[in-house]
Amino acid sequence: MKMRAGSAFTLGAQDAAFLRIEHLSIVAASRGAGNIPFMSRALGSRLSPDNRRMTLFFSAADAHGLLAHIKTNGMIAAIFSLPSTHQALQLKGSDAKAEKLLKSDGKLVASYRGAFVEHLKQFGHSPTLIEALLTPVSDDIVSVTFTPSAAFSQTPGPKAGQAVGPAR
């Protein structure tokens, strides 16, 4: 599905509710010259109250390629998955930009880490391991915000990849 810049896409209420679950596993991808993709794990997310803007947090050292790519072309894809059910949703956008952190974002990142560790405990994953996975080397958190212009169900199965819209 091609993205239309400035299209009237809005997230459905159900999808928005899903994206607000705190313990989702989030990975985002960008692409650079020669259409070579780059990917980084996000350390939390924030969906704007009107469901139109998605903000992801990254460690700048980890997401170096993604930050460079979005400066050039703004293209981003991000997958959000709930480990307990494998339910997953992918958002795409073409206006991704690094933004200043809000004062409350530090708390958001710490809270996300706690929630994710707690959620994965039930599957036998060691909390220290998951903590390490979500803790940046230094305090180099950056935020990247984009307008979701399309959403796709990524729950494993033959229907994975189907576009979803506000009607859901």
Partner: peptide, 21 residues
């Protein structure tokens, strides 16, 4: 043990990311 992810890119330059089993 911990699922990996794969990022690809369509011919029109749109990136895509998904979990791998």
């Amino acid at each position: 043990v911990i699922p990996g992810t794969i990022a690809t890119c369509a011919a029109d330059g749109t990136p895509n990311v998904t979990f791998l089993s």
